[in-house]
């Protein structure tokens, strides 16, 4: 098998993928590579092109330009082989509601030449107690775990998870994180899309930030935050119509962002900036409401790069 040669190197090579819908370019010249056993996150707001990128990689959409190789197989020429080495969990997948967990797993297993042990897989995604329940009666988190199990049924090398935790409660998200961490421990290469910063930070080895169809940054979570050059943020609210021109000239402040009168100052030195802010605000008789300090996050990285919030 030709795919095996590249096992040690990059499991995924994406080369200039482009997808257009009419005049709109949904994905524009996206390039990245993922090495074996890595968890790669695609981060961005809704409509950034994450899902379209994943759909092109798994063979659900034909790219207009560019291509990608998954485990050495070209997605344009060898989609049959590609489908055998990948497992897919699609955004908002729905399954046959009237079948039970066990039945639907057996059915999906039959689509591939070989499959892993179904009882073991059910156990791994914590559905053993639910194995005889119909899909209809599962909770959102349980359905999502079943969807992940179906992606793993043929023991794929690469697993694509498209927003696996969207719409789940915090408890269910934590459970799912645990399952994804187990997958990583077993050496699976994982591509994960999300618009939750904390999730990307916890799970991903490297993150590609997408905005308006383009990959605008790609690095480890720590490096991305570090590259802000300002590791801290000061947040506060102001009343309407205040004169805020002084904020830009505060000591050590690198950037000011404003959303609905909620201001964030990015700074290298929280002490200098904060003292300066409070002094100036007092002398101008400006009331700083709900003042907070924190370290910068991926969310701040996104705002820094695009000027917009992730969940706008």
């Amino acid at each position: 098998m030709k795919g095996c040669d590249q096992m040690a190197e990059n499991m995924i090579e994406v080369e200039g993928l482009v997808k257009r819908y009419g005049k709109e370019t949904a994905v524009n010249n996206v390039k990245f590579s993922v090495s074996t056993g890595e968890v790669f996150g695609l981060l961005g707001p809704n409509g950034a092109g994450k899902t379209t990128t994943i759909e092109m990689l798994v063979g659900l959409r034909k790219p207009d330009e560019g291509t990608a190789r998954l485990a050495g197989f070209d997605i344009r020429k060898e989609i049959g082989e590609v489908k055998e080495v990948i497992g897919v969990q699609l955004q908002s997948t729905s399954l046959f509601e009237l079948l039970t967990v066990q039945e639907i797993m057996k059915m999906y297993a039959s689509f591939y030449p070989s499959n892993v042990s179904i009882p073991e897989l059910i156990d791994e995604v914590l559905l053993t107690e639910k194995k005889k329940d119909r899909v209809k009666n599962l909770s959102g988190g349980q359905k999502q775990r079943l969807a992940i199990a179906l992606a793993l049924i043929h023991d794929p090398k690469i697993v694509f998870l498209d927003e696996p935790t969207t719409g789940l409660d915090p408890q269910a998200r934590r459970t799912l994180w645990g399952i994804i961490e187990n997958l990583k421990a077993r050496g699976k290469t994982i591509v994960l899309s999300t618009h939750y910063m904390d999730e990307a930070h916890v799970l991903c080895d490297r993150i590609g930030i997408m905005d308006q169809g383009e990959l605008i940054a790609l690095d480890t979570p720590a490096a991305l935050v570090k590259n802000l050059q300002s590791d801290s943020a000061i947040e506060f609210s102001l009343l309407h119509n205040e004169d805020v021109s002084f904020l830009d000239s505060l000591q050590a402040v690198k950037q000011v962002s404003n959303q609905n009168d909620r201001y964030v100052l990015y700074t290298d030195s929280i002490q200098l900036s904060l003292t300066d802010l409070i002094q100036q605000a007092s002398s101008k008789n400006i009331n700083l409401q709900d003042l907070q300090m924190r370290t910068a996050t991926l969310e701040d990285v996104f705002i820094h790069m695009t000027g917009r919030s992730l969940r706008e």
Partner: peptide, 13 residues
């Protein structure tokens, strides 16, 4: 419409 067929398209079926 519910994406059931799409999911199956992602397999070797």
């Amino acid at each position: 419409e519910r994406g059931i067929l799409r999911r199956m398209q992602g397999t070797r079926l």
